[in-house]
Computed example of a mutant assay.
Amino acid sequence: MNASTTAVGSTIPERWRTLRWVLLGLAAIVAVAALSTWLTAPRDGGRLDPASTSPHGTHALVTLLRDRGVTVVEAASISDVEDAAGEDTLVVAAQTYHLFDDELLQRLSEVPGDRLLIAPIGRTREALAPRLRRTDAAEFAGLDPGCDLREATRAGTVQLGAADTFEADESADVTSCYDGALVRYTEGGRTVTVVGSDEFVLNSGLLHEGNAALAMNLAGSQPRMIWYAPQFNEGDGSAGDAPFTDLIPPQVYWMVLQLALAVTLLAWWRGRRVGPLVAEQLPVVVRASETVEGRGRLYRSRRARDVAAESLRTAARHRMLPRLGLNYAAPPPAVIQAVADRCGLDSAALAHTLYGPPPATDADLVNLARELDDIERQVAQS
């Protein structure tokens, strides 16, 4: 009965240790899965925000363009647009609630490169497409291009939703598609394209008929595209008054979180290996004889007669040098000569004892210790 009870009792801790690691592994898997799900969840943002994966963002279009080889610059301010723009650049100005300031629109109109205006309001259209005027607003669904514009004919039927229509003055040579919802003209070597709706570029609208093709054909017409959909008011100083935390990229927070988690797990793992605290009275007094005996046994167990002999010789020389009037840097010949003059001993014998080769046996080591003691005694008494 006692033997069986002991056997059962001894297996319980072993089973618990095994089960503990299994539970810890399952907890780690669940934590990683939860973190991955949270990281890949839709990210809210403003309308037409290129970083937003919400239905009203444009992250999907930006990703498709980059996969196609187009260099996409996500401009957060008009200064970013001015720095990145060039002659071979397409500037996409997507109308948001923050694209209205006259000074901002004036600076945007002076930026080089082609333009693509998405659902512009009156002030934006007058500054960036002055040859066009709005005519009407209608609901466009399943509408054919009705023009010879390559970008539109390749896309075919699209669903633009509620869209404005435009017409140009008599002096502009305009190509009009989708009953005026998409208009293009060229002036001063610059191509200006205006679309009266933003539904076809949103994440929620790309899957409808030819919307994705139209968005990629229009936004990918140049090897370099600047997407400008301002998410804050630049004219009232909101950008300059942004807190310091807004300037930190989101990836930095995840790096810090992962680093903190790794440090916490490492501290927990190392803390378990230390064990419980042990009370000990300090300081601990160790006798000199115990230290000498312990070191001697260590040398003997490793047959380190050379190290032991050198320790004995070095200690003896250091004790004799002050009595001889020499410093610790004195060369061997000077030390041998000083000891010989002081004690009247043979120089060759002193050189062999103080600086000779290591002893070959334990008996030779004992004899060396005795000779060093004798020499040190004579120096002290002379």
Results as ranks from 00 to 15, higher is better:
residue 2 N to W: 11
residue 6 T to V: 13
residue 7 A to E: 03
residue 9 G to Q: 10
residue 10 S to T: 11
residue 11 T to Y: 07
residue 11 T to R: 15
residue 18 T to F: 14
residue 19 L to M: 10
residue 22 V to K: 05
residue 25 G to S: 10
residue 26 L to S: 11
residue 31 A to L: 14
residue 33 A to V: 15
residue 33 A to P: 03
residue 35 L to R: 07
residue 37 T to R: 14
residue 38 W to K: 07
residue 42 P to K: 02
residue 44 D to F: 05
residue 45 G to T: 07
residue 45 G to Y: 02
residue 53 T to S: 15
residue 53 T to K: 10
residue 54 S to T: 12
residue 55 P to R: 04
residue 56 H to P: 10
residue 59 H to T: 10
residue 60 A to M: 03
residue 62 V to D: 06
residue 63 T to E: 09
residue 71 T to Q: 14
residue 73 V to T: 12
residue 74 E to F: 02
residue 76 A to W: 03
residue 81 V to W: 00
residue 81 V to R: 00
residue 82 E to D: 07
residue 84 A to W: 05
residue 87 E to S: 13
residue 90 L to D: 04
residue 98 H to A: 10
residue 100 F to T: 11
residue 102 D to E: 15
residue 106 Q to P: 05
residue 107 R to I: 01
residue 116 L to P: 02
residue 118 I to S: 00
residue 119 A to K: 08
residue 123 R to I: 08
residue 123 R to E: 11
residue 124 T to R: 00
residue 125 R to H: 07
residue 133 R to A: 14
residue 136 D to H: 14
residue 137 A to M: 14
residue 137 A to D: 03
residue 141 A to W: 06
residue 143 L to N: 04
residue 148 D to R: 09
residue 156 G to R: 07
residue 159 Q to W: 13
residue 164 D to W: 11
residue 165 T to G: 03
residue 166 F to T: 00
residue 170 E to F: 12
residue 170 E to R: 12
residue 173 D to I: 05
residue 177 C to A: 06
residue 180 G to T: 11
residue 184 R to L: 02
residue 185 Y to F: 13
residue 197 S to T: 06
residue 197 S to R: 01
residue 208 H to N: 10
residue 210 G to V: 07
residue 217 N to E: 13
residue 220 G to L: 04
residue 223 P to S: 04
residue 225 M to Y: 02
residue 225 M to G: 02
residue 226 I to V: 05
residue 227 W to C: 04
residue 230 P to W: 00
residue 230 P to H: 01
residue 239 A to N: 10
residue 243 P to E: 04
residue 245 T to E: 07
residue 245 T to S: 12
residue 247 L to P: 02
residue 249 P to K: 09
residue 251 Q to A: 15
residue 254 W to K: 01
residue 264 T to I: 05
residue 264 T to P: 06
residue 264 T to H: 06
residue 266 L to S: 13
residue 268 W to Y: 10
residue 268 W to S: 15
residue 274 V to E: 06
residue 275 G to T: 03
residue 277 L to R: 15
residue 288 A to L: 14
residue 291 T to R: 15
residue 293 E to N: 12
residue 296 G to R: 08
residue 299 Y to E: 03
residue 301 S to E: 15
residue 306 D to N: 09
residue 306 D to M: 07
residue 309 A to S: 09
residue 316 A to I: 00
residue 324 L to S: 02
residue 324 L to R: 03
residue 326 L to H: 06
residue 331 P to G: 02
residue 332 P to C: 06
residue 333 P to N: 05
residue 334 A to C: 01
residue 334 A to H: 10
residue 338 A to V: 08
residue 342 R to W: 04
residue 351 A to G: 15
residue 352 H to I: 03
residue 352 H to V: 03
residue 354 L to R: 04
residue 356 G to M: 06
residue 356 G to Y: 02
residue 360 A to E: 12
residue 367 N to E: 14
residue 367 N to L: 15
residue 368 L to G: 08
residue 370 R to I: 14
residue 374 D to C: 01
residue 376 E to F: 03
residue 377 R to S: 15
residue 377 R to C: 04
residue 377 R to D: 12
residue 378 Q to M: 11
residue 379 V to S: 01
